[in-house]
């Protein structure tokens, strides 16, 4: 698959189609949410409000299931990850548009944000000293492996999403070129499922990484249950 082309440049700043599409998504989210939440009613919710409440409550429940009592803190970041990745993945279904998540730059940026948020929420939850101490548990010898795990899971996060979405679009394009107009329809339906599954996986892994960072000081105190979430995340 070819790299996203530059749409226009502002001086040395080259704006690619990925960025333009993402701006379009921002506009879509912004206008859509503003229109949908202008007149919310606690007594008589409409269809759109009910759908929005269902989405928000589902995200809230998922976060609360992993980190009880922290849903309010993590909802903006994790929820935005889920919504953005899901919609960005589905954008590839629109003709003449490519999914922003089929660009490694986007997935790397998201993974980088996840990497930063893990440390941000971990330090905020346990304090800098306690948070850094968990890299030395159960033994300081494991520090390189901890650091390697941090970077590798971030790269894996970016590569997984990029690889899946890019391959889906490419597969659909190849089938369309080889077989004809309507043959890629099953591939496109598979694209929908895969897009939602990858969004769920990306958000869930981010949530698990953040939960691991926030619970690191507890893990360092209880060495019998070390970094279970990190192990799970790194092997996904």
């Amino acid at each position: 698959m070819e790299a996203a082309g530059v749409v226009f440049s502002i001086g040395w700043l080259h704006i690619t189609s990925t960025v333009v599409t993402t701006w379009g998504l921002l506009l879509f989210f912004g206008v859509g949410c503003w229109l949908a939440t202008r007149r919310l009613s606690a007594d008589k919710p409409g269809l759109v409000q009910t759908a929005l409440e269902g989405v928000v409550q589902s995200i809230d429940s998922a976060i609360d299931g992993v980190l009880p009592g922290r849903a309010e803190l993590l909802l903006p970041f994790v929820g935005t990850l889920w919504l953005f990745v899901a919609v960005a993945n589905l954008t590839g279904l629109i003709p003449e548009l490519h999914s922003p998540t089929a660009d490694l730059s986007t997935t790397a940026a998201l993974a980088f944000l996840v990497f930063l948020s893990v440390h941000w929420y971990g330090i905020r939850s346990a304090g800098l000293k306690e948070y850094l101490k968990h890299y030395l548990t159960p033994s300081p010898i494991l520090l390189p492996f901890h650091l390697l795990g941090e970077f590798s899971r971030t790269i894996a996060l970016a590569m997984r999403l990029f690889g899946n979405i890019m391959s889906l679009e490419m597969a659909a394009l190849l089938v369309l070129l080889v077989a004809g107009l309507l043959v890629p329809v099953p591939i496109l339906m598979l694209h929908i499922v895969e897009a939602l599954v990858q969004a769920y996986i990306f958000g869930t892994l981010a949530l698990i990484y953040i939960a691991g960072g926030m619970q690191s000081h507890e893990a360092s105190e209880n060495t019998e249950a070390p970094q279970s979430n990190d192990k799970k995340g790194s092997t996904t």
């Binding site: 080259h14 990925t18 960025v19 903006p76 935005t80 953005f84 986007t106 944000l113």
Partner: peptide
Amino acid sequence: LNWTTFALEIINFLALLWILKRFLY
């Protein structure tokens, strides 16, 4: 990996985070 896109996507995501937090959550 396009570093400009990388940086702009980070900014875009943070902007989206603010938008959703302000107008949705």
